[in-house]
């Protein structure tokens, strides 16, 4: 195991120039993904999570977009790369899958043709027959029954879940080291979602790839994540291991999100208020206007730095700065803490 992370993102900023002014979608986020790790980027729509995931391989259209900050993949700075190298990274070591598989597949060609194409563009020396065999192998791998027969089917002959499987198969063509999955199950039924999550889990074990999974659904996060980054209005609110996040949610926003889950305390109220305007974000902590624990300093000071809660578990909340009492947020004793491993304290 090398000490170097697979992907390290530091102080990533992505802005868009619009008529209304400069829209800051991602405002200085940092995280790392280790080899073979699944990291979930969680947030509501408009939190900038998709833009963040697209900024990694510079998929953001520029102009109007502009990406700043350091993104290092295996120690190589992606920001410094020229177009050829970028293309190699995108089509090789880092693969993307998206929310709507129907938009990502070309409807004019058979699924087999598209996979063969992908195989051949990755390994130009592969013969057509060999490429087809590889395609069958990949489709079988992602659980398409009877792959050989379905190779000559067109995308519209596949269901939504199957299309997502095909997309995953295409992403696997290059044996990627990092798979960036942007809400791959949001458009799918719950039953199909369960299948896809299982599939990703199995593939990760087999291929040992890192996964950056972008989602708004904490239920999904709990199932697949090793570590979690919670985003809100372009900022990281909290990050830590999945157990940290679920058993000791330390940022008021994370807590609110978890309580919003069906069956949770807030499942019937939600979080009052709406996301701030990305063109003109509020002073101070971004979440302060919706936060029930906000103190006056939250609105006047800068957005709080990430402060350690315990070990690698960080929260960007004023309560974790010296001089504040963090128990205000999780209360003296909560169910989550009671379930937690026991000895963990937050000071």
């Amino acid at each position: 195991m090398t000490t170097e992370p697979l992907l390290s993102v530091e102080n990533l900023h992505t802005t868009f120039t619009t008529d209304a002014g400069t829209l800051t979608a991602v405002d200085g986020i940092s995280f790392e993904i280790e080899e073979g790790e699944t990291m979930c980027l969680v947030g509501e729509s408009g939190s900038g999570k998709t833009v963040a995931s697209e900024s990694i391989t510079r998929l953001v259209q520029s102009p109007p977009g502009e990406v700043q900050g350091t993104v290092e993949f295996r120690g190589r700075d992606i920001g410094e790369m020229d177009d050829t190298e970028l293309r190699e990274i995108r089509g090789g070591d880092v693969a993307h899958i998206f929310q709507n598989p129907q938009d990502a597949l070309n409807h004019c060609y058979t699924v087999g043709w598209q996979i063969v194409e992908a195989v051949q563009s990755h390994e130009p020396n592969t013969g057509r027959e060999a490429a087809r065999e590889r395609a069958v192998e990949l489709l079988t791998e992602v659980g398409i029954a009877n792959a050989a027969a379905r190779l000559d089917d067109y995308p519209h002959e596949f269901s939504g879940g199957q299309k997502q499987r095909v997309m995953i198969a295409m992403a696997l063509v290059t044996n990627p080291e990092l798979l960036i999955a942007d809400e791959p199950t949001t458009a799918l039924d719950v039953t199909v979602q369960a299948q896809i999550l299982k599939l990703l889990d199995r593939l990760q074990d087999e291929y040992g790839m890192g996964i950056l999974f972008v989602t708004h659904d904490l239920g999904v996060v709990a199932q697949i994540a090793d570590s979690v980054v919670v985003m809100y209005a372009g900022k990281v609110m909290e990050r830590g291991s999945v157990l940290d996040i679920f058993e000791q949610p330390s940022h008021p926003y994370t807590r609110a999100l978890i309580e919003c889950l069906p069956g949770g305390e807030r499942s019937i109220d939600g979080i009052p208020g709406t996301l701030p305007d990305p063109v003109d974000p509020p002073e101070g902590c971004r979440f302060a206007p919706r936060c029930e624990h906000a103190v006056p300093e939250c609105r006047t000071d800068d957005h709080p730095e990430e402060s350690p809660v315990s070990g690698d578990h960080l929260a960007a909340c004023i309560y974790y700065k010296p001089g504040y009492d963090a128990t205000v947020i999780h209360g003296p004793e909560t169910d989550a803490q009671a379930n937690a491993t026991g000895g963990v304290t937050n000071d």
């Binding site: 719950v190 039953t191 709990a222």
Partner: peptide, 14 residues
């Protein structure tokens, strides 16, 4: 259908 509901408990084996 019921078993496919994701639970918010990372320790739970689905």
């Amino acid at each position: 259908l019921l078993s496919a509901i994701p639970t918010a408990d990372p320790r739970a084996e689905q």
